[in-house]
Design a protein around this nucleic acid. Structure first.
Length: 726
DNA sequence: CCTGGCTTC
């Protein structure tokens, strides 16, 4: 298609907005007469703060190729802006408006809502796409998806050519995926603008894009080389909208060459903030006291207390019950409900159920209540000011979880949870001068994690100079080098640090930790891909065994029937196979819902997390599809577990440890002294040499998920690493 | 002799 035609069509659009953008269009009115539900939806839409600025917003989007929209909570930006753009003609020629979300649930629920508002069937004009669940079709024009999924799409279509607009929502959360996506989109937009700029399309580029281009050139020409090979093809320009809920639009604006930022008001009730007079030496104790202070002195309304983890939640829950049992009258008036991610979903739902009348609910939550779930009815928030956060030490190549102070924006987000339905109060359990000392915003995740996966993705997208890549915030040089090194040792990168063919490309295609992708490629050669697929699926989920503190011994005996003397990997395979055998048998015998119930019972009896196991099955199915498509050899090693263990050694050679005289182990790659985690089936075995999948630092440094190997296999199977050292 | 903030492809 000639670029000129596209340019003209677009200019035409600018001058004459499509009439369908007007919500009073007769078609729509006629429909509402027939449906009270639709009438109500229309009223709700009109009452949203964003409805009054529709025209202004659409104008700004027409004028600017990049627009930052700061929309406060409750503004309606996520559901309304895509509809405005659709009405304004941004989906002509079958083009799609893509909206990314950091979380699956958000993508799914928002898409459902918008489909309803549009009065269309979900999956047709309005759809969503998340991993394992795609509700889109060729007629989908408004597509909600996770940001990670759009990154994957970019591997198949580097210009994201079917999109006319991409909206990155919740950008302030700064997840790894969002950060990488922003860098990618900046380049894609540039490449697509360049592709039309050879002809008359040139007058199309506005100031923002030009300034973005010049800054790219100063950047060593990194981006101009990226995607260059397609420069002769013609693409329509890409509109980019970055939506953020926090006030720091400046970071995004500067990153996108002083892009224009607009502000949309939200609908939030005032929240009074209270600080303590002095620092609290024990925030758990302070939280406990504050809960009862509110309960006894404040008016009706539920309480939400933010704690750092399951252990804290359970200990406070116990304390509250103890106190309530001493005063039976109070106990009828206070209902304690915990919520954290690891909690089975039936129990999570308890947090959402309204308390009986005359009863106050106190929800003890982790960070899950900060953004992932919104619990209705909260009037009081208790914020001790701490959060458990991931950190990464590139020198040791080790990630860990630590309790750290929140940032100002996190504190703000938490207090906002009290003002969703009416005025509220937030009790921060620290003095006001401590608040002033907090970081403005949370350190972006990309600076706190292992980068192997990010780098593999970028390389696959054609970005070869990772150190020069235009990240919105650059990870440390040490972290980048460490991950490049790992990828090189896995054979994903060549001596010139390019993606190797075919191994590197195959690894990039699989949505897994790079070392797991590599293990599948090797397993194809070792004739044990069937076993390794199960292994990798089971290792990719949260822990399979669920052992409550009070039933530790019981759970040990239950899981014993699966355990293998060779290690945890074969144990996991046995669990997976037992589950699937049962799944097959039960679904033949009974109906679907009944068999699901039987499986959950089986999981409970065996102290296995059914959520993790189902998740592992999803991953298994998806990855199996990929490896078959890639032409890998899907064979089973049968009973020859030696072959399988050799393959584990060849795959996870970077995570090998040998026994030391005093019974501890030494991790060969980093030299760290580690211990076998007591949950491992090898805890009492003390094998001479093992490979492991996880090194966690708690009271001690523990290795988890291990299998016994022969030390000599390492020099034989990973000579690139071990031959040199000996 | 133990522990897992939250996500995601």
């Amino acid at each position: 298609m000639p670029s000129m035609a596209q340019g003209n069509r677009h200019q035409h659009q600018r001058q004459r907005p499509s009439p369908s953008s007007n919500s009073s269009n007769p078609n729509r009115n006629r429909q509402t007469q027939f449906s009270a539900r639709r009438q109500k939806i229309l009223q709700q839409r009109k009452s949203l703060p964003i409805a009054s600025v529709e025209k202004r917003l659409v104008d700004e989007i027409r004028k600017n190729d990049i627009l930052i929209i700061v929309g406060e909570t409750g503004s309606g930006k996520t559901t309304q802006i895509p509809q405005f753009l659709f009405g304004a003609g941004f989906c002509q020629d079958g083009k799609v408006i893509g909206i990314t979300q950091p979380r699956r649930v958000a993508a799914v629920t928002v898409a459902k809502r918008v489909a309803e508002e549009f009065g269309v069937e979900l999956g047709q004009k309005v759809g969503y796409s998340v991993r394992f669940d795609d509700a889109t079709s060729s007629s989908t024009r408004i597509k909600y998806m996770t940001d990670g999924l759009l990154l994957r799409e970019a591997l198949l279509d580097p210009h994201l050519s079917k999109y006319s607009v991409i909206i990155v929502d919740e950008a302030h959360e700064r997840t790894v995926h969002t950060d990488v996506l922003l860098g990618l989109l900046k380049n894609v937009q540039l490449a697509r603008s360049n592709s039309v700029s050879h002809g008359q399309g040139l007058n199309f580029l506005n100031k923002n894009v030009n300034s973005a281009m010049s800054s790219e050139k100063e950047n060593g020409g990194q981006s101009s080389s990226f995607l260059k090979k397609d420069h002769h093809e013609k693409y329509a320009p890409l509109k980019l909208i970055i939506m953020s809920a926090s006030l720091d639009a400046r970071t995004f604006s500067e990153y996108f060459g002083c892009a224009k930022a607009v502000h949309v008001q939200g609908r939030q009730f005032p929240v009074d903030i209270f600080y303590t007079r002095h620092g609290e030496p024990d925030y758990l104790d302070a939280a406990f006291i504050t809960i009862f202070q509110i309960h006894l002195e404040e008016g009706p309304g539920d309480i939400l207390a933010f704690l750092t983890g399951q252990e804290e939640i359970e200990s406070i829950e116990k304390l509250i019950h103890e106190r309530l049992s001493k005063s039976p009258q109070e106990s009828q008036k206070l209902l304690v409900v915990p919520i954290f991610a690891a909690l089975p979903s039936e129990q999570q739902l308890r947090a959402f159920a309204p308390a009986p009348s005359g009863c106050r609910k106190v929800i003890l939550a982790t960070n899950i209540a900060e953004t992932s779930v919104t619990i209705p009815g909260i009037k009081y928030v208790i914020d001790p000011g701490f959060v458990k956060a991931r950190s990464y030490d590139p020198a040791k190549g080790m990630e860990s979880l630590n309790v750290v102070p929140t940032s100002k924006s996190q504190a703000l987000q938490r207090s906002g949870r009290a003002g969703r339905e009416g005025p509220g109060k937030c009790f921060r359990l620290y003095p006001e001068k401590e608040f002033d000392k907090l970081e403005d915003s949370t350190k972006p995740e990309i600076k706190r994690c292992n980068l192997s996966n990010v780098i593999l993705q970028l390389k696959a997208l054609g970005v070869d100079d990772i150190l020069g890549f235009d990240f919105i915030e650059k990870p440390s040089r040490a972290a980048i080098i460490k991950s490049l090194e790992q990828l090189f040792l896995l054979g994903a990168l060549t001596d010139e640090c390019r993606l190797s063919d075919p191994v590197g490309y195959q690894m990039a295609r699989l949505p897994l930790d790079p070392v797991y992708s590599k293990s599948l490629i090797l397993a194809s050669q070792f004739n044990c891909l069937e076993e390794m697929l199960i292994t990798v699926a089971m290792l990719s989920v949260e822990s399979i065994f669920y052992a409550p503190r009070d039933k530790l011994e019981e759970s040990r005996t239950a899981t014993k029937s699966f355990s293998s003397p060779e290690g945890d990997h074969i144990t996991l395979i046995k669990v997976y196979r037992a589950y699937n055998d049962l799944l097959e048998k039960r679904s033949n015998e009974m109906g679907k819902t009944k068999s699901e119930k039987a499986l959950r019972t089986w999981c409970r009896e065996n102290f296995i997390s059914s959520r993790s196991l189902r998740h592992a099955c999803d991953i298994h199915r998806q990855i199996q599809g990929h490896v078959v498509q890639m032409g890998l050899n899907l064979a089973s090693c049968g009973d020859d577990m030696l072959q399988y263990r050799r393959c584990l050694a060849a795959s996870f050679f970077l995570n090998a440890a040998v026994k030391q005289p005093e019974g501890t182990y030494r991790a060969l790659a980093s030299g760290q002294v580690v211990q076998i985690h007591p949950s491992s089936v090898l805890f009492h075995q003390k094998a001479e040499c093992v490979i492991f999948n996880e090194l966690v630092q708690t009271n001690n440094k523990y290795i988890r998920n291990l299998t016994r190997i022969d030390y000599l296999w390492l020099t034989e199977l990973a000579p690139q690493y071990y031959a040199v050292q000996n």
